[in-house]
Nucleic acid binder design. Sequence first.
DNA 1: CGGGTTACCTGACGGC
DNA 2: TGCCGTCAGGTAACCC
Length: 273
Amino acid sequence: MPELPEVETVRSGLALLLADRPILCRVQLMRADLRAPIPASLARRLRGQPIIAVRRRAKYLLFETPAATLLCHLGMTGTWRLAPSGDERIHDHCYLHFFDGRRLAYRDPRRFGLLDLIEPGRAEEHPALAGLGPEPLDARAFTGAVLAERCAGRKVAIKPLIMDQRVVVGVGNIYAAEALFRAGIRPSCFSGRVSRPRLDALVAAIRAVLLEAIAAGGSTISDFRQAGGDSGYFQTRFQVYDRAGQPCVRCGAKLRGAVLGGRSTVWCSRCQR
DNA sequence: CGGGTTACCTGACGGC
DNA sequence: TGCCGTCAGGTAACCC
């Protein structure tokens, strides 16, 4: 489900819900592992702690408490929701119970997500966060020059390259396709052969599409929901994603579809070179 | 090392 | 109705 706009939408929703810094009275794990084992000490370490902030790095959520930070990746199907008493669902893997009586539920049918603990001040050392590329919305960190350096001499196609979280974070299959369409770049283009002006355009397109999607509350495909339960609506603005065989919004040509780097890819062979 | 494929897991959907 | 194949927003372990 979640690329940067969806994770940011969840983050801002949770930050609003938790703005009064509620104190955890119980962390209830319903299973011992997701994609990776959940530390056995997680519940004990977080008990009695206030949530002082909810941050985002790449596609990760960080629930900060004085004693430790709860790290969460939503994988493909992870969701957080306010779960009143009686609202228990299949694939709920973790409940955060607060002293004020509220409860947050983490639900993740495919279990590609991650829950882990980070020691205070050690976020950059965590294996999942170390080595991540720049935030695409940070205009100083993610520039055409930075992307050009990562592309130089590379034969990997540009679409899988911009989905590589070591190059730039937060871009997944949907927004990679949308950004490449906006920039007029064919997804299968060798990274090392995309000109510098076109890489500048791609950086701008990535930033623009992510910002527009955040403003729209993310894209709701299947069961993505904001933390408040609302749907995002950016999916109504897809120009290429999931539109193979349909007409290009710009020129009317039939959009092409293929598998690239193991992921479904859609593009306009007339508008994208 | 770079580049490509596969596995992880469940659910939804289309075809028969 | 139900069975089966295919596909899904991500990541990482493999292979050559």
